[in-house]
């Protein structure tokens, strides 16, 4: 039995553990309310509890969908949230003046610096930051109600990290939109057109076997390895850029890449030998020009199980 969003946390907390899914007790909520500093922004405890309930249920307390969270898991989930940032964001979204003053004092300048770092230009950065700032302040209205993107902040990461990621999302989306609107003259001058599926032409039998071996090999590699290949060979990112994403040292990324490429090569050879080719033919086949294979590696790497993200790109 799961927790429904309409069910207040306080009511559930008083239920016995055996019959109800476990939820954090009121003392825990009181403690979290005090620790979060919500009172500074005039956020009453009932409102705070509702926010926690909403955050917990929408994310199923960090568990797989359909899994009922125990009391301990819920408490752990709540303790893992950035409660001070969450209350500040919600207080700002509700228009609390003191919260906005604090937000301006703490986040306005870092927001500008982040935008400048993301765009690489002070003018574009200030423009991007101002645009987001106006949205955060709730200047955009939907169904007659002013809405702030701060409402979507759930306290999983830091508020500053959320602001940076939001800025980056806006910048990337803007860049992608405007890239599609390039005039034809620019395309003729060498700008890459949007990727299109190309019909594979007729290939010699041995190249078809090689393509088959490559596809089968790449389909079997793990998620992290797939990410490494995409980041390094498709995006052209450096080891230094990839390392912090995986939270490892760049030397580790380098080692993993070497091992991965060696492993892929060995697996391709193994697959080809499995098709009945001899070693000499396999070696000759590996010396073929990759451009003759007519393989869309980007597309191959993108093949994976559908994920559970329900949210649209733009907020």
């Amino acid at each position: 039995m799961g927790i429904t969003p309409s069910q207040p946390v306080e009511d559930i907390a008083s239920a016995p553990e055996s019959s109800q899914p476990a939820v954090p007790s009121n003392p825990l909520l009181n403690e979290l309310w005090r620790e979060s500093g919500a009172a500074l922004y005039g956020l009453e405890q009932q409102e705070f509890n509702r926010i926690l309930e909403s955050v917990g249920t929408t994310q199923n307390y960090g568990l797989e969908p359909g899994t009922a969270a125990s009391r301990r898991q819920q408490a752990g989930f709540f303790r893992g949230l950035r409660l001070a940032d969450l209350t500040l964001a919600r207080a700002c979204a509700s228009g609390h003046e003191g919260a906005w003053e604090h937000f301006i004092a703490v986040y306005r300048q870092p927001l500008f610096r982040a935008a400048i770092a993301i765009t690489g230009s002070e003018t574009l950065g200030r423009e991007l930051a101002d645009q987001l700032y106006a949205e955060l302040y709730g200047l955009s209205a939907r169904d007659g109600v002013r809405r702030s993107p701060l409402d979507s902040y759930k306290g999983k990461g830091s508020l500053m990290g959320w602001l940076r990621t939001t800025l980056a999302q806006r910048h990337v989306d803007h860049h992608r939109r405007t890239r599609r609107e390039l005039p034809l003259d620019n395309l003729a001058e060498g700008h890459e057109p949007p990727a299109a599926d190309t019909k594979p032409g007729k290939l010699p039998a041995e190249l078809l076997l090689l393509a088959k071996a490559v596809v089968e090999t790449l389909e079997k590699i793990e998620t992290v390895e797939r990410f490494l290949l995409a980041a390094y060979y498709i995006d052209g990112r450096t080891l230094l850029e990839i390392a912090p994403v995986l939270h490892v040292h760049e030397a580790t990324v380098s080692r993993k890449l070497h091992r991965l490429v060696d492993g892929i090569r060995k697996q391709i050879v193994k697959n080809l030998l499995g098709y009945g080719l001899n070693k000499r033919a396999v070696q000759e086949m590996l010396g073929a020009d990759p451009r003759d294979l007519d393989l869309n590696l980007k597309k191959i790497l993108q093949i994976s199980l559908p994920d559970a993200f329900q949210e649209k790109a733009a907020l």
Binding site: R113, A168, V172, D235
Partner: peptide
């Protein structure tokens, strides 16, 4: 991926 790279770049600058 691009979003993450850019966000990290901003975090490093910060």
């Amino acid at each position: 991926r691009q979003v993450i790279y850019l966000a990290q770049k901003a975090a490093q600058a910060e």
